[in-house]
Each structure stands twice: as structure tokens, then as C-alpha cells.
């Protein structure tokens, strides 16, 4: 027994010394060139209603253009959980990977591997900021530079452009959230909003329980609070729930970004008058179409290039090959009935 172990260990050691270590260089292309084009979408996590809507859009594009589409979600939104899925899909010879990255830095190496093997990689909903070279193109839901100012306008119009309000965000380091919050702070410098005071920014980690706790704490900490602005769907629902529980609906205005399905009740019962979001299914549709056409080599993204969608509509690639899907939609009691995502 002992000698066997020693031999094995010796052999392993010898092998290491003999062969010398080297970094693996990827050269061969594994992407299948025959058969239908295969596209996978990897959302941040499964069971997330927002990505269900994005998935609908992908399915629609797949039905119209005739490519094979699969959605594969990691169980939880941790940075590393998407890595095995990406590797498996590379091995499966998928033609295009669309991904909503959970972490830019942690995913960059494996996405680069995918690109080296000839897989088309596009990011959806959020970009690989700082590592743009690890994806071919990016589809964002809307022009992010406008989100901050339009959210402030929405909040302002609801609270009569005066009084105290607070922001309920996701995590302290969520790139999209921080970008939008910076936009909001910028917009607040406009004299139009001079009577509005941002009293604080709190973070609910996109966890329903935590977000509710934070929203309740805002209500008790600032008895004269006029508004809560939550640019995240979990936070927005939690803020509405907190205001409803505290029976504060008249006093505190709640708005932000959320899906109609999650907000329907609060809009119907008057807790929330208006809130906004882009159309996630349109984003899925656009991303699916782009992934398919790029995998077919019909589209070569480059800044300034126009991208003609077969079903109609034209988009222009911005800097870093970013496409933005469409405008923000505002939902209220009058129109929420016609949206189902």
C-alpha cells in the first residue's frame, strides 16, 4: 500500500518535472459550423422575474429567426456560478453566448476563452465595464445616461418638487446602480430641483427582507420624508410594501424602477402612483437577434455601424459596441393593465 502511494507520488512529481509547465494556448475552434445556430442566454440567477421577461424576448427572436435557444441560469447570483455554465457551453459547441454578468472581473478570463474558440459573446443588461475586450458587443436596455435624470424628474413630479427624499438601492457596489445614482446627483444640481433634498442612500442588497427593513427604517428615521426612490425592482416592491404597512401612502411617494407584475398591486391600491422601466422583453428580442446575426457573421459590430433588425427597426452601435434598446416606459394605473412582465 505504502509503496504504491510512493510510486504514484513519484510518478506525478517526475511527470511535472519532465514535461515542464506551460500555459495552455487555445487555438482550435470548437464551434459547430453545421446544423442550426445555437444561442444560450445566461441570466444572473434563476427565479428572477426580470430575467423571465428577458427570456420571453429571446424566445420570440428564436421563433422568428429559427435559431436554437436555451436559457441556463445559475442557482444564485454569485460571481463564480456562471463560470462552469460558460465552460460547458463552449464545450457544447454553442455559437453565441448572451450573458448578464454577475461580476466583470471574475468572468473576463473565461469569456475571453470563449471568444478565442470562436464563440460570439454579447453581454445583456449590464456590461463588462473595464474589460470590454472580453465580449464582442453589449445590449443595454436603455440609454443609461438618461436614467438618473428621468428618475429624479419622476420623483420630483410626484412630490411636488420639494421636500426630503431617500434612495433605496441594491448593493453598495452595483455598477449600474451607482452609475444611475451619480446621474441622479448630477440632475439634482438643476435649479428646478433645488427644493428637493436627498437625505440618504440606503442599500437593501436586493434581498426582500433586508430591503423592507431599510425602507421601514427610512420611514421612522425621517418622519417628514416625502419620497423613496428605488431604482431596483426588489427595492421598489419592498419600499411600496413598507409604505403600505405603515399606512403612509398619502405622505410618502414611492417610485423607481420595477416590473409591472411585481408592482401591480401597489399601483392598483394607490400606494405607488407612477414608476418606470424599460421593456426587458424588447431587450431580449434585440439581444437574441444580434447574437444570431453575429454568429452567422451577417453583422460586424463597430462603433457607429447601423444594425438593421430583420423585423424592422434600426439601431446604431455606440462606443465600445454598445446598443441601447429603447426608451424608459412609465407605468401608472391607466396603462399598467396592458403590460404583462
Amino acid at each position: 500500500m505504502s509503496s504504491m502511494w510512493k510510486k504514484t507520488a513519484g510518478a506525478a512529481l517526475l511527470l511535472t518535472l519532465l514535461s515542464g509547465c506551460h500555459r495552455q494556448i487555445v487555438t482550435q475552434t470548437t464551434v459547430s459550423t453545421s446544423g442550426p445556430i445555437r444561442v444560450v442566454f445566461i441570466p444572473k440567477n434563476s427565479g428572477n422575474p426580470y430575467f423571465d421577461a428577458v427570456n420571453t424576448g429571446f424566445k420570440k427572436a428564436s421563433g422568428q429567426l429559427g435559431f436554437k435557444y436555451t436559457q441556463l441560469a445559475p442557482a444564485t447570483a454569485e460571481a463564480t456560478n456562471q463560470i462552469p455554465i460558460i465552460q460547458q457551453q463552449i464545450q457544447n459547441g454553442v455559437n453565441a453566448i448572451a450573458i448578464s454578468p454577475n461580476s466583470t472581473d471574475a468572468l473576463a478570463p473565461v469569456l475571453k476563452q470563449a471568444m478565442q474558440k470562436g464563440v460570439t459573446v454579447i453581454t445583456v443588461d449590464a456590461d463588462m465595464t473595464g474589460s470590454e475586450s472580453s465580449r464582442n458587443a453589449c445590449v443595454l436596455p436603455t440609454d443609461f445616461s438618461q436614467v438618473g435624470s428621468s428618475q429624479i424628474e419622476l420623483m420630483g413630479s410626484l412630490m411636488g418638487y420639494q421636500g426630503k427624499f431617500a434612495i433605496l438601492s441594491a448593493t453598495t457596489d452595483a455598477p449600474n446602480q451607482n452609475f444611475w445614482i451619480a446621474g441622479m446627483k448630477q440632475a439634482l444640481k438643476n435649479p428646478k430641483y433645488s427644493k428637493m433634498t436627498l437625505v440618504g442612500i440606503v442599500y437593501g442588497n436586493d434581498d426582500p427582507q433586508k430591503s423592507l427593513l431599510e425602507a421601514q427604517s427610512l420611514l421612522t428615521r425621517y418622519p417628514d420624508l416625502k419620497g423613496i426612490l428605488a431604482p431596483t425592482s426588489v427595492g421598489l416592491a419592498a419600499a411600496a410594501q413598507a409604505v403600505e404597512s405603515a399606512r403612509d401612502a398619502g405622505r410618502v411617494q414611492v417610485t423607481g424602477l420595477g416590473t409591472p407584475n411585481q408592482m401591480r398591486r401597489y399601483v392598483t391600491d394607490g400606494t405607488v402612483k407612477e414608476f418606470a422601466l424599460w421593456d426587458p422583453s424588447a431587450m431580449g428580442d434585440l439581444a437574441g437577434t444580434l447574437a444570431y446575426l453575429m454568429a452567422k457573421k451577417s453583422v460586424q459590430p463597430a462603433p457607429g455601424v447601423h444594425f438593421q433588425v430583420p423585423s424592422g427597426g434600426s439601431y446604431q452601435f455606440g462606443p465600445n459596441n454598445v446598443l441601447s434598446t429603447g426608451p424608459l416606459l412609465t407605468f401608472s394605473k391607466s396603462n399598467i393593465g396592458s403590460y404583462h412582465f
Binding site: T16, C21, H22, Q24, A79, T104, A106, D173, A174
Partner: peptide, 28 residues
């Protein structure tokens, strides 16, 4: 917090890509 801390020296990154013959060194 929720940050990624990076900026490691190049020699340190990508140990999983280092192979000894057909075997990844980390496996060995």
C-alpha cells in the same frame, strides 16, 4: 463589500491555465 479586488501581478493569475503535459498543475 461587494467590490472585486484585483490588480494581481500577471505571474499570479490563471494558475488553472498552467499545464504539465496534459494535466493541469492544480490537479496534480
Amino acid at each position: 463589500g461587494d467590490h472585486s479586488v484585483g490588480g494581481f501581478p500577471a505571474w499570479f493569475c490563471g494558475v488553472d491555465q498552467v499545464y504539465a503535459g496534459p494535466f493541469p498543475v492544480t490537479l496534480l
